[in-house]
Amino acid sequence: MTTHWFADTAVLTGRSLRHITRSLDTILTTVITPIAIMVMFVYVFGGAIDTGSVSYVDYMLPGVLLITIASGISYTAVRLFADMTGGLFERFQSMPIARSGVLWAHVLTSLVANVLSLVVVVLVALLMGFRSDAGVAAWLAVAGILLLFTLALTWLAVIPGLTAKSVDGASAFAYPLIFLPFVSSAFAPTDTMPAAVRAFAEHQPATSIVNTIRDLFAGQPVGGDVWVALAWCAGLLVVAFGLAVLIYRRKLA
């Protein structure tokens, strides 16, 4: 059965990707919130936030990219949920195909959709004055971290996709993830926050990821944050993947 894994997964991914290419509104609704946040912060609040010599749009773009991913993966959960409840999932599972390919197809589709959304948001940021000193290597590093973060959150999204009782339930898990960057170094420096909030902000995953990407965009050497960021992403990926696969197997029992 595994001999057809690549072929089956490719066919299933092709089918799932049509949901992106045929209803581009999922990309639009994914990027509209991050873009609105970007506009609000750059033109309304940003002037009052002291980010030193860094322009505010440069300062907050990494956080906005994380928000983009967090809102993008909620669609992954919704698409998976639709297959679960619509009967397609059972049809695939009763066929002689690589069973895990059904999940991987959704995961790969999620990566493609999020890459598209991220590109759109970066282009809008460029229009709003975002400039980067990053070289090719630094851009690749940014892309790598964002992909890893997307992959980790996508496997997290698989869990509600498989277990939710309603569409709303399948997408609601993303809200806390969307808000996580707000309580981090993404929009304002953490040193003005009250002690408890600051402690949380400095030790949650968004801060290390944001700081790493910000350094890369600025063309500066990254500090120890990069290891913390990678550890968060890898840890989350391992835990979410393990749980998702466990739930998936149980669903089939």
């Binding site: 089918r15 049509r18 045929r22 209803s23 619509g86 009967g87 397609l88 059972e90 049809r91």
Partner: peptide
């Protein structure tokens, strides 16, 4: 339930 994909 008819196992079909609305978008295809």
């Amino acid at each position: 339930f008819a196992a079909v994909d609305e978008i295809l």
